[in-house]
C-alpha cells in the first residue's frame, strides 16, 4: 500500500466514524425525541438554576508550565528524526543531542528557579 493510499484509508476511517455516530444518533432518534420542559436545559449546577454564562476570562494557574511546555514541544520535532538515525551515527549523535538537551534543560532550570514550575 502506498503512503497516499494509507492516508486515504485513514481519511475514510474518519468519515466512517462520523457516519457510525450519525447512525447511532438516528437509532436513538427512533426511540423518541427529548421533550422540551422548562429548566431542563440549564447546565448542571447541583440543583441551583444558575443563569449567568460562565464564558469569562478564566484564570489558568498553570501558565508558567504552559510557557515552558511550548518550548519543549518544539524540541520534540528534532528528537524523532534524531532517534531514527541514532544507532547509525553513534557517539556523535549522543553528544549532539546531549548538548541540545542540556541547553533545553538550562531553560527548565531557569524557569524552575524563577518559580514557573508551580501553581501561580
Amino acid at each position: 500500500m502506498s503512503s497516499l493510499q494509507q492516508y486515504g484509508l485513514l481519511l475514510g476511517i474518519t468519515i466512517g466514524t462520523v457516519g457510525f455516530v450519525l447512525s447511532l444518533f438516528a437509532l436513538a432518534r427512533t426511540f423518541g425525541k427529548a421533550r422540551r420542559e422548562p429548566g431542563k436545559d440549564v447546565p448542571a449546577t447541583a440543583g441551583q438554576l444558575s443563569r449567568d454564562p460562565v464564558w469569562v476570562r478564566y484564570h489558568a494557574r498553570y501558565y508558567g508550565y504552559a510557557l515552558l511546555f511550548l518550548a519543549f514541544d518544539m524540541e520534540m520535532a528534532f528528537m524523532y528524526p534524531w532517534a531514527v538515525v541514532y544507532k547509525q551515527v553513534g557517539l556523535v549523535a549522543l553528544l549532539d543531542m546531549g548538548v541540545f538537551l542540556a541547553i533545553l534543560f538550562l531553560g527548565l532550570l531557569y524557569g524552575w528557579s524563577q518559580g514557573a514550575l508551580r501553581r501561580q
Binding site: 518550548a71 541547553i103 531553560g107 531557569y110 524563577q114 514557573a116
Partner: peptide
C-alpha cells in the same frame, strides 16, 4: 548541526524571555 544547535539556543532564549516576562519572581 549548527542550525540545529542554534535552534536549541533560540528555544532557550524563548524560555528565558517567557519566564522573565510572565512569571512573578518568587
Amino acid at each position: 548541526m549548527l542550525i540545529f544547535e542554534t535552534a536549541g539556543i533560540t528555544i532557550l532564549t524563548a524560555m528565558i524571555a517567557a519566564t522573565a516576562v510572565a512569571i512573578l519572581p518568587i
